[in-house]
Design a binder for these strands. Sequence first.
DNA 1: GACCGGGCGTCAACATTGTTGACCGAACTT
DNA 2: AAGTTCGGTCAACAATGTTGACGCCCGGTC
Lengths: 185, 185
Amino acid sequence: MLQTGSGATTREAIHSAATRLFRARGYSRTTVRQIAAAADTDPALVIRHFRSKELLFLETMHLTIDDEPLLDVPLERLGERLAGLLVELGGSARGVFLALVHGSNEPHIHERLRDTHERLFVAPLRRRLSCPDADVRARMAAALAGGLLYALWVAGDEGLLRMDRTELVSRYGALLQEVLTPRTS
Amino acid sequence: MLQTGSGATTREAIHSAATRLFRARGYSRTTVRQIAAAADTDPALVIRHFRSKELLFLETMHLTIDDEPLLDVPLERLGERLAGLLVELGGSARGVFLALVHGSNEPHIHERLRDTHERLFVAPLRRRLSCPDADVRARMAAALAGGLLYALWVAGDEGLLRMDRTELVSRYGALLQEVLTPRTS
DNA sequence: GACCGGGCGTCAACATTGTTGACCGAACTT
DNA sequence: AAGTTCGGTCAACAATGTTGACGCCCGGTC
């Protein structure tokens, strides 16, 4: 009957509090009671609205990039464009990505991360390629993309973090370009 | 005074049980009581020998590769050699790597992962290069290496997993080679 | 109007987690 | 022989995710 009483609003309060906390502190370091307190409600209600902490996590942690800017650039600049997107990605996307990676010990979260990798990197890149080995190229480029995020955020390579952004974009972009449209020399 | 009574043996039993369980199930899904049961002892003793679950994890989860085979290959084959090492790495190294990545929500484990990345990938590669930008090249190659492990194990890209090993080594190796010793064309 | 059925909220409890302290036995030191 | 220290056992603690019992209040039905 979906009566839109105060139920929906507290549900949204829980949702937004969970989003913020999961992004900031990850899955295991965020407790249901913290979420309840931030949403000014009861821990039991958090579970009653979303059926478990893990389902709440899955419902809040969606990693999306507008992949339109990926598509509207000429093919020979795709590598640099993707590299630029990756290094500028920071902020909220960083939190979601790290939460997914850290939480992917849990099978459902791992599945979510795999979907995200496929949908965010592999599929858009493959769509831009027409050669017979487009799938392999897209997957290798996706591995490179994930590798950059891994090195910067997961491993925390301070050498790369301190590096000049435009140089990093240029060099890593050239590498991505080499996977996507190799020089046949 | 180091009396080698039954103290050291149970400590080793705990150590080996923890190693096995952490590798198989990761940090958060392994409980101190499971470790104690597998070592046939008491949970309290696990904590008394290693001061906390996290310290026990750090003492057991060391990721090492004999980097000698990395060094004894001519520079122009280094890329393919590294790629070969990475895809054949499986087994126990996979468990340790995943445990570190998943657990790196915890600051100390994150620090361990950063050290491992530096010691396992960045440093050996930089040692082989002599150009002025050796550091940047080594770090980018390390990002590629981590990206391959990330794509295969963390994200679980089934397309790459199903791919022919020798082709994957050859193609990803060429890419690594491009970072290490770029064709100046 | 009386009734009551179900969504919303509150509270107390449960099992499990990591961790600590109290107690005990045995072995080594003096 | 006395004492100190290490190794082990047991019970407890606070915090975690989760569940069930109870109360409230609004919307529809006799």
